[in-house]
Every structure is written in structure tokens, then in C-alpha cells.
Amino acid sequence: MSFPELRAALVDSVFAELGEDARWSGVADPVRVRRKSADEDETIGRLGIIATSEVLRVRKSDVAAPAKGDLVDMLDDAGVETGEQLRVSGEPRILRNLVWEMPFSVVAG
């Protein structure tokens, strides 16, 4: 097995164990998403601070081209919408492991 194949298997395992089911606008089947805390360096005048924010991650194999404004409805274990809805609030960026990462905001829930 090649390194890219091993990395893909690892990413799939992480999403299977730590991900949550969701329905992504414009995508027919449910997908697995992960919420992750991310640190960002910010500067205010001369003061440097580290701000923590949450980002949403989804595999490229599940969502080929996420976009700012996409809606994500979270699902429970039975595949029923929980009432929690997220909106992609910034431009998605692709990581080396073929996972999209993007900021989001909670719309409902």
C-alpha cells in the first residue's frame, strides 16, 4: 500500500470514529463532518494574541466543492435532522490530506 493510500485510510478512520453525520446542501447522500478548534495568530497594534475558533472539516470525496454560504444540517444516529444547522461562513481551503477546512457559524440549534 502506498503512502497516499495509507493517509487516505487514516483520514477515513478518523472521520468514521470522530465525525458526525450531516446533510450538506447540494449533496444527495449524508456526509461525515468534523468540528475542530483552530488557533489563529492575531495582532492588535503591538499586541500579539492567539484567538481560538472552530472550523468545519469534510472530506473532498464527500463534498467536491464546498462554498461559502453552504448549509449543513446535523443528523442524529438514526439519520434524523437534529435542528442544528451550520452555515459555511468563509472560503474553504483544501488541506494536503484532501480534507476541506472552513469557518462556520451556527444558524439554528
Rank of each mutant, 00 (worst) to 15 (best):
S2M: 06
F3H: 05
P4F: 14
E5H: 07
E5F: 04
E5M: 03
A8K: 15
A9L: 05
D12C: 06
S13Y: 05
V14S: 09
F15C: 11
A16P: 00
E17L: 15
L18D: 11
E20F: 13
A22R: 07
A22L: 05
W24P: 00
W24D: 02
V27E: 06
A28M: 06
D29F: 02
P30Q: 11
R32P: 00
R32W: 02
V33M: 03
R34M: 15
R35M: 02
R35F: 03
K36M: 11
S37A: 15
S37W: 11
E40M: 14
E40P: 00
D41P: 00
E42M: 12
T43G: 01
T43N: 07
R46I: 04
R46C: 02
L47F: 09
A51M: 11
A51E: 12
A51F: 03
A51K: 15
T52A: 10
T52R: 15
E54D: 14
V55E: 09
L56K: 06
R59V: 03
R59Q: 09
S61A: 14
S61Y: 02
S61I: 05
S61T: 13
D62V: 14
A64H: 09
A64R: 15
A65L: 15
A65D: 11
P66M: 13
K68Q: 13
K68E: 06
G69L: 04
G69T: 06
G69C: 05
L71F: 03
L75E: 01
A78V: 03
V80H: 05
V80L: 09
V80Q: 13
E81K: 09
Q85D: 00
L86M: 10
S89M: 10
S89P: 01
R93V: 14
I94D: 01
I94T: 08
I94E: 08
R96W: 08
W100G: 08
E101K: 07
E101G: 05
M102Q: 01
M102Y: 02
F104C: 07
G109Q: 09
G109R: 08
